[in-house]
Amino acid sequence: MNKPEKVTLFIQCLVDTVFPETGAAMVTVLERLGLKLDCPSNQTCCGQPAFNAGHQREARAAAVKFLDIFEDAEVIVCPSGSCVNMVRNHYLELFADDPKMLVRAQAVSMKIYEFTEFLVDVLGVESVGARFPHKVTYHASCHLNRFLGVDRQPRTLLAHIDDMTLIEMKDADTCCGFGGTFAVKYSEISGAVLEEKVQNIVDSGAEVVTGCDMGCLMNIQGMLSRKNIPIEVKHIAQLLAEK
């Protein structure tokens, strides 16, 4: 793919409502690269929470709305691997028995990218000229890493941030225990899984934990805060926007 004329932003609902600074950071990075951006302001959630909880009817309704809004885009970029996995992979399953919708879902599936994947694989960018003089550890979120196969891309971008020390934590690619409604319905199990993740982050000695999914990072932040551990949580876009 050549450099697109215009990038359409798909803002994960958590970023939209709780972490808008992550969205703003992504905008900063993309604009610095000279890209024209568009952001349909009637967008909402892609339907993943409903889908993962087994409510396919509701997920399908969300998917229809998503396709209505985004199908004319040239390229769609989202700061969440999990949401991209939903649109790229699960929409196809949701519409497996509906040939007309399936064609639309396939078309969108082909042009949606997770933020770091877009930078490295589409734009061919490895360094965005960022500087962040801190010790950072990276959490490889599950859907991004396993279902999209995106791991090298964020690590490449991180490796090119000036003055930053990247520390590999133990089991960086092990789940943080989020899992959407799982974290609420099975909070004790979720908390036990998270406990180990937080311990690994603490043991790494990093000042900041980063990743490509605000869902996981919100989960991690929740326990760091509960335990009064002064480690900051930042989406990778926020690090890449630092100068």
Binding site: D16, V18, P20, E188, G191, M218, M223
Partner: peptide, 15 residues
Amino acid sequence: TANRNMKKLAPKTFM
């Protein structure tokens, strides 16, 4: 919140 905190909604959405 049985075992973690939750960040508040931002004053303004990204949109």
